[in-house]
Design a protein around this nucleic acid. Structure first.
Lengths: 339, 339
DNA sequence: ACCTCATGTGTAACCGATTACACAATTGCT
DNA sequence: AGCAATTGTGTAATCGGTTACACATGAGGT
């Protein structure tokens, strides 16, 4: 490894001068600068981040913790984050927790050693409720690092956040299904222990209420945002004697589980039963499979989250900001029941 | 920030002793250890990675550079990598290059400042051919860091690698299509400037040859592994007067582009025309959409890549290793032409 | 009683950068 | 000509850890 000391030696100057050249700070004679620069180029000198970080007391990495890296939704968010990180010369350290609280704890502990510039966090744990969550919150608070919570809303969090209009979008889905002709609706919820799960259910129920409809208790299927559960619940629902007119599936995985079950049972979505999801499944559109849903621009959500973090880093004392990602409604045919 | 010095002071010992407690090295009296540990716990002390890295001359981060983070294929690889990283207490710094050479250059430069433990790289650039590629190769070589090349094979690379049986799987696809009854085959290739693109084409052609078939020049559609191009080429192919019996789409995005075009034109895959891809599209299986292909266990591929890197880190002088990820063939109906 | 060795702890150099401060040389202004 | 301000460079402390080395203590063996 070639160090600043060697560069200085080869250029016949002190390390201070080399450092000035690197950082474009202080006074440096043009000729000296040229010499130093050519030496650096010749020897492929690259300053060592850990040394720079240590002396400058800051780093150029950001921490990112997400619950499912292999879910399109999150990988699109990562795409957006990566873009903004690239624009700003930041290195993203990414942890995939697979919705596992212990993994999340390990990730945060690793992050806390890195003195990252800031943290983007989509928690798997409800920080207000579980004891591990509380401990993690302490770790983060101690860190004194800017944090932006992404997507997963939870009680008792006081950091900047980029959330989704969970309630509003669900409300809109209810209206859309009503306008498509649905009268008896069912819903496969997400994890109701999470605020996001409750919001989506409540928004949907409220939307129905406005149209004068009521959500029957036994038309509420309590899921967990994951496919296997959604699949099982869908089978249960679809094998009953009387089907609802339309179903609301609360996230992309839930929608997938439903579609799979419906497909297997020969029930045609958009004909035998109406369906709307929340979160798009781009691939379905591409394949021309009708799938109506409320959705948001996920990559943009990542961009916004990181930009918010950067803003917070520059202005640590501004009041807390909560951005509510707006939704769009895509009607592609699956919302209707024709028969 | 609480530092080792403060901990030492509070515990009434020297920093050396605290360090010994942290690293479980040297001799430390049981009582002293207890004191130090309780102080560390009480004050939430966490050693600063950049300081540790600097003095230990090593780090616990690994660099990862991939071309499309929002492609399921890569996000599943990342899932596998994350798993092994977690098991080994490593922090993955992930860069998404979006197949852009300049982005890749920036990513590698950032990585080179970090003194990462090692690098997993799926290059967007052919390191032997473009001048930027050569420069990047120099950067990497200078780094003296273990590198494992993932998925994207290129000429003139001498690092450990985890590749796919590109040739063999394509060969097998040709055979499978033949056995399904196809006689005139077409192929939508990937980027033929890349070795992987050529291998998949050549393997397919060789497979056909073995069965006595020949791949006609105008049945070769030169794509670039991306959807829009595949879509255009597919339209072109499908709007011709005479269709081939079956088509080989060289990667998942190409398959998607084809399916979209076929869907739009009302051509039923698995009936009007046979189709096999390379790379699975899990979601299609889940939805019960027939799609036959050669595929591999992608998450496993990520795991293997990182394990290979770790092995290399421990044994820098072992001979170069190339792992060729085996393929499986999934026949789900789309390979046939029935009419 | 003496020596050896294991145990326990502290001192201080070091990792590779940055930067406050000191100092010299040159420039510009009256 | 005299002095202040600007320009250019080096010395050395510092960031927060690790670790080689020195040293002290006590146990065990003869």
């Amino acid at each position: 490894m070639i160090t600043i000391k060697k560069v200085a030696q080869l250029a016949g100057v002190s390390t201070a001068t080399v450092s000035r050249v690197i950082n474009n700070s202080g006074y440096v004679n043009g000729k000296t600068r040229d010499t130093v620069e050519s030496i650096m180029r010749e020897y492929h000198y690259v300053p060592l981040d850990s040394a720079v970080n240590l002396s400058k007391q800051e780093s150029s990495t950001i921490g990112i913790v997400i619950p499912e890296i292999d879910n399109v939704f999150y990988s699109e968010i990562l795409h957006g984050i990566s873009e903004v990180a690239d624009e700003n010369g930041l290195s993203p350290i990414i942890f995939d927790t697979q919705n596992n609280a212990e993994k999340e704890a390990r990730a945060l502990r690793l992050i806390s050693r890195q003195r990252v510039r800031g943290l983007l966090l989509a928690p798997a744990v409800d920080y207000a409720k579980t004891s591990l969550g509380k401990e993690l919150k302490d770790i983060l608070t101690d860190l004194q690092i800017p944090v932006v919570i992404v997507d997963r809303e939870a009680d008792g969090i006081s950091w900047d956040s980029v959330f989704y209009q969970n309630y509003e979008s669900s409300f809109a889905v209810a209206e859309a299904l009503y306008h498509a002709g649905g009268r008896r609706m069912a819903v496969i919820t997400g994890d109701l222990k999470l605020k996001i799960g409750r919001d989506r259910l409540n928004g949907f129920a409220a939307g129905l209420k406005l149209t004068g409809l009521k959500l029957r208790k036994d038309d509420i299927y309590e899921g967990n945002f994951l496919e296997p559960m959604a699949y099982e619940l869908s089978r249960k629902m679809l094998m009953k004697r009387s089907l609802p007119d339309a179903v609301y599936t609360c996230n992309n995985r839930t929608s997938l589980g439903f579609l799979k079950a419906a497909g297997e049972l020969g029930i045609q979505v958009g004909k035998d039963i109406g369906l709307m999801g929340n979160d798009s499944l781009r691939i379905l559109d591409e394949l021309g499979i009708p799938f109506s849903c409320a959705y948001r621009d996920t990559a943009e959500m990542g961009r916004i989250a990181l930009r918010l973090l950067l803003k917070r880093i520059d202005h640590p004392d501004d009041p807390r900001e909560i951005y509510r990602m707006p939704f769009s409604i895509a009607l592609r045919g699956s919302e209707k029941k024709l028969s």
